[in-house]
């Protein structure tokens, strides 16, 4: 078995994970990054995407959006803005958000930048959730 490291995942809804993990893959703002034991100290900002966590040979996926990852002296802290395990994702809500955002984007082109940016961000979040949730259904 691979060596494990201590991992904490906290969001504002509480402590989601606190324990030993063997591997953590997250989507940072520049691309996917895998963290194994004895990783060098690092800090990076997270993008939107799938996170994969391996503990005791078990593999779990989640939708992980925004926030940051910190590795300090071997302890890993993941502080995302939102983090949902694949099985907890509300697919109906994501679908609705996707439709709404599409509608806003398609509606007209005279809107200000802020509305479009918000709709795009919503669209992306919905897509991430849908794809992560879709993976376990398959």
């Amino acid at each position: 078995m691979a060596t494990s490291f201590s991992l904490k995942i906290v969001t504002c809804d509480g402590l989601i994970f606190d324990g030993q993990a063997e591997k953590l893959i997250v989507r940072t703002s520049t691309g996917d990054m895998a963290v194994l034991a004895r990783h060098i100290n690092c800090v990076c900002s997270l993008g939107m995407g799938r996170a994969i966590l391996e503990t005791n040979g078990e593999r779990k996926t989640a939708a992980c959006i925004g926030g940051m990852l910190q590795v300090l002296n071997g302890d890993v802290t993941l502080v995302p803005t939102t983090f949902e395990w694949a099985e907890d994702i509300d697919v109906a809500r994501a679908d609705a958000a996707y439709e709404n955002a599409q509608k806003v984007l398609n509606a007209s082109d005279n809107k200000d930048n802020l509305v479009i940016m918000k709709a795009k961000a919503k669209l992306n979040r919905a897509l991430v959730r849908k794809s992560v949730a879709g993976e376990i259904l398959r």
């Binding site: 990076c44 940051m68 002296n73």
Partner: peptide, 12 residues
């Protein structure tokens, strides 16, 4: 210990 900032400290 050194800390790596990905992609750069400023952006992080």
């Amino acid at each position: 210990m050194d800390t790596v900032y990905e992609p750069s400290a400023e952006e992080v």
